[in-house]
Design a protein around this nucleic acid. Structure first.
Lengths: 340, 340
DNA sequence: TTGAAAGCGCTAACAG
DNA sequence: CTGTTAGCGCTTTCAA
């Protein structure tokens, strides 16, 4: 049996209140007794029961995190950022991977409620109406991470996906490309799908290039059907010299496909990724991509959630962190940039 | 304020015990009351407080997981396996990433204790004496995942690293290679370092090949200094035709380095990885590697921990799951295999 | 400065 | 079948 506060009290020959005091307000207890208690704690290796504490304080210093796909390395750094911020603020993280399963998500959310977590970090997937309702029912502080919602009043932290896609494509255009294709996520995905496509289309439009949807292939979700998509794109748009993809995974898959087809990257086709996952740096050629500040997104989202929990109402509801273009070797520069 | 069992009791006009009963032994309460209670629960959106329950039952249905490096994709599938098994058995996972920081590890272990988790899954790093002492002090069920300990009596589930490395190198030998090098982790790493080197050396020795340490470069930890290591290996062992690496990350880094040097894989040098992470399938060329059953390791470790918690003392202390060689394109076959 | 006692939300005897 | 009561481990009045 684990030692309890009673055991400590008995051993130190004081009341349990005194033991409690040396833990929570040591200055209010006289030196001699404090020493006795400390000694007893040490000898019994006593550690307070967080359940009992949580019952009283009505908080657990625990945050619940739902991740849609833990295998996606994109989340690894988000989690690290969350961890570091949590450590700093004294929280623990319960991380749950839903594998994009609705039932699992709901079950985990319920669990968070029952376990009395202090707040929830909801990662990456669009907030569908029934998800919102579930979140709403819980009546718990939530922050959306790498996703947001325009319909609902939910705090969020992410990058500006439309602008990031725009900048990526503009980089390609500034490099001299005029035949630019895209492999993206389906438009029904309001986070990684639609906005990135819109940024792509806007960049083309603003530079008087062909922005017809024929130059775009949408893939369904995050599966590994890049080869098909790539084949389709090349077939429909044989003159393409640069492809913007909505994720590094798609980009790496595309490069692998092109390699198999004997098409050289970037000599024949340039590839621009999105996310800047670690592996982009080990691909052949190294991936040019737009970097999300993943670690910071994770970090900031915990800070924000903490502010909400502590009711230090923080500035903006929807926060957008800056992205950057990472120039590596998968995109070819046909002409030097026009000007800043 | 969240509704409590009292609120439900009041609304349903019964005692709290009756409410408790409809939740834990519904058959013992008469239909009419049961309906009233269920209705009240629904209307108040009541969910039991897991802290209060945990206090009484002395269990929380929660498992603590420590991961040394969440960015390593190797752990992603382990976690998925753990998740699925946990879901099945009714556990929740608290996942903590230590980034290989001693202090963090200890802090998290303490946290697990205070939060009263039912058991701990300790992942991948060797069990150093002070780690063992910390684990010991906690007096909690533990299973070691992807690591084990010969010094201490600690249950574990992993593959047989020595044999897996042996098989990998034997595959290279059977393919006709006679000049085989290795990039591995330092021998002080008793899991991913020493045993894999030993398997490598045994395979060479048994086939009368040169197993001098000159053909091996050890890297320090999991950092990305593969290029240096690769350069060193080639310099010391210019006639090498095949390299066995102790992880896919090292293998992919090696391939990237060789590509930069204009050395073709597998035509000039064959590369054999270890782990079978997802990205090996997207590298150029696709990575030949030895697959760890990561998902199963995660799954099994939860099953084992559960058995220990429930005191269904399960068979073996140290479990070894089977590995397999995944033949892809990064290792060249110089001659067909001698025989099965 | 300290101890006794109430209570956090829930379960589990124990009567009735 | 159901309500009353004690108690899980801890914090926090309230007196002393």
């Amino acid at each position: 049996m684990k030692p309890t506060i009673k055991d400590v009290a008995k051993l130190a020959n004081v009341s349990i209140s005194t033991v409690s005091r040396v833990m929570n307000a040591p200055e209010t207890v006289v030196e001699t007794k404090k020493l006795r208690v400390l000694d007893a704690i040490e000898r019994l290796k006593y550690k307070p029961n967080a359940l009992a504490r949580g019952l009283i304080y009505k908080k657990t210093n625990t945050l619940g995190v739902v991740i849609p796909d833990i295998r996606n390395p994109y989340y690894a750094d988000i989690i690290r950022g969350m961890e570091d911020a949590s450590k700093m603020l004294g929280y623990n993280l319960i991380i749950c991977n839903t594998d994009r399963d609705r039932a699992r998500l709901f079950s985990y959310l319920n669990n968070f409620y029952e376990k009395q977590v202090d707040g929830i970090l909801y990662t990456s997937d669009p907030v569908y109406p029934d998800y919102y309702k579930a979140l709403q029912r819980l009546q718990m502080p939530v922050v959306l991470v790498s996703t947001h919602s325009m319909e609902y009043r939910l705090p969020s932290v992410k990058i500006n996906d439309e602008q990031a896609a725009y900048d990526a494509v503009k980089y390609l255009i500034d490099s001299g490309h005029t035949s630019i294709g895209m492999i993206g996520f389906h438009l029904s995905d309001s986070i990684a799908g639609l906005p990135r496509y819109e940024g792509f289309a806007r960049a083309l439009r603003e530079h008087d290039l062909d922005d017809s949807k024929d130059n775009v292939v949408f893939v369904n979700g995050w599966s590994y059907d890049t080869p098909d998509a790539a084949a389709q794109l090349i077939a429909r748009f044989p003159s393409v010299t640069a492809v913007f993809t909505s994720s590094d995974e798609l980009a790496i898959g595309l490069i692998a496909y092109l390699h198999e087809q004997g098409i050289r990257v970037p000599e024949q086709i340039s590839v621009m990724g999105f996310d800047n996952i670690r592996w982009g740096n080990l691909s052949i050629p190294k991936l040019t991509t737009v970097a999300q500040p993943t670690y910071e997104i994770g970090f900031r989202s915990v800070m924000k959630l903490n502010a909400i929990i502590k009711e230090q109402d923080d500035s903006e509801l929807r926060e957008y962190l800056p992205h950057t273009i990472i120039e590596r070797a998968s995109a070819k520069i046909l002409k030097s940039f026009s000007s800043p």
